[in-house]
Write a protein that binds this DNA or RNA. Sequence first.
DNA 1: TTGTAAGCGTTATCAC
DNA 2: GTGATAACGCTTACAA
Lengths: 302, 302
Amino acid sequence: MSQSTVSLVLAGKSEGRVKPETGRAVREAARRLGYRPNLAARNLRLGRTRTVLLVVPTLASPFFGAVYTGAARVAGERGFGVIVHPWNDDAVPARSPIDIEAIDGVLASSIGGGMTGLGDLPLVVMDNDPAGQAPSVNFDVAGGMRSIMGHLHGLGHRRIGHLAAAVDAWTFRVRGEALGPVECRATTAIDVAAARAAALTVLDRPDRPSALVCDDDLIAAGAYKAARHLGLDVPGDLSVTGFDDILVATALEPELTTIRLPAEELGARAMTALLERLDGGIPGDVSLPGELVVRGSTARRG
Amino acid sequence: MSQSTVSLVLAGKSEGRVKPETGRAVREAARRLGYRPNLAARNLRLGRTRTVLLVVPTLASPFFGAVYTGAARVAGERGFGVIVHPWNDDAVPARSPIDIEAIDGVLASSIGGGMTGLGDLPLVVMDNDPAGQAPSVNFDVAGGMRSIMGHLHGLGHRRIGHLAAAVDAWTFRVRGEALGPVECRATTAIDVAAARAAALTVLDRPDRPSALVCDDDLIAAGAYKAARHLGLDVPGDLSVTGFDDILVATALEPELTTIRLPAEELGARAMTALLERLDGGIPGDVSLPGELVVRGSTARRG
DNA sequence: TTGTAAGCGTTATCAC
DNA sequence: GTGATAACGCTTACAA
């Protein structure tokens, strides 16, 4: 029995070309011998790897775990694998052996600048500027911010402060722009301690805002701390909102009013788009709405 | 000019075998043409991939991001790459094309049972039962728990409750055992809402404990909520401790007394051990101490 | 010091 | 319906 026959059978292309009985024999033997095709050889021959690279800014946020889950699910259904590559935006990553040629396409999430050094592989970006050259799958970040503003206005808030993330990425630029002009604004790293300090500069004065819009749930956690430090009750004296609805949103007390972003669906839709590209299609841009989740951190202006 | 000459030069094995001048020419040409060796072909020929698989239970916890960082750093220094594979312990993962044969070794973190289906690749386990057959790199979880108990005893606490994680993994079994007999105990998923419910069963009675030891920081967050619900002040009426020192520990109010586990070092040491194994060595087991971080959630019994 | 050739395991082509 | 053969790009032993 020759290699080609085996290859045909195991690739499921034996339809009408190999006697059913032979096919069965092959499969039986393969099972018995524990045969598994050699990936390196297959990749060498085909020039494709059925593997996609998922580039994320960090693995330190559970958010990207969800993005991965969605992407991996869709990829798995189509027989593709996903490998994750955290891209420390300052330091270009240590080049890994799973390198450019071992990859069929790239999914990049919330990656601001460069993205250089990846050649010109098929690329789909997530949570990124849709004006770029690559197809994009985005959250409707601006819509989310408008929901928050609508919610706060409905509660009677007029003096609104903004705690902006000091991160140079599309998603945060849009958050600031969608908010429009605000009473006061401070910028902070996405980090509880830094956010607390930034919040103090905004809150520790007589004309303090009655509501604080934060670019991220973690920043909101810092805002809580500043408020407590100043003896301000949330939401009695100060309403606070977050963005993302990550884990910490429900760990806080009171629980945080925020925008839930469907991270898993983001990954899934982006992978769908990338696979369409790999099939020669031209995927359209996608925008996924976020959902305002009202919890205990916002209340009518006191 | 022949392939072999090029191969020799680019592999850095040209020492005394290729004229320096030829070597220079090769490198120059490679640079100019943007030549990059084909990984699939190299792997096929060599039968090795210089790639290690990092298996983690989930990417939804930032803890494993840190483990990855440490592992990737050490691997990078030795020219190895790391690919991350989240292993949803119930559902065996969708098999990825980067499969067993495309991997030189496996690093498994906090993986309880099975670990089947990975063949008999060189394996090092992290945060796992050291009595297994594979070399292990662990936290001194028992020591950490004893630190917590010592701390609480020193504060005068005698009635101590335990909120245990309902996860079948070595690390959690050890936490329970190291604690010894306690006043009362409840079991919960690692999840704020579930932990809150579990904490209520322990706290909502006259003989409630004066301190609550939680298997995880997230569980502690749930305990906070239960305490607030019952009108108990933390730490005035109830001391609470966590374990891990993940992000949420400092987002809470008051900040959480917990055990800081050096996750990044865990990854680094485990990768070091695995590479030693790949070199034919026999790495010894490692145990990394955790550090008691006293914050505002524990106080002298009131 | 350089070139030649074999072979890694797979898939595609084409002859039988 | 099946089998022989070439080719993918690389490394390495050996010949020149």
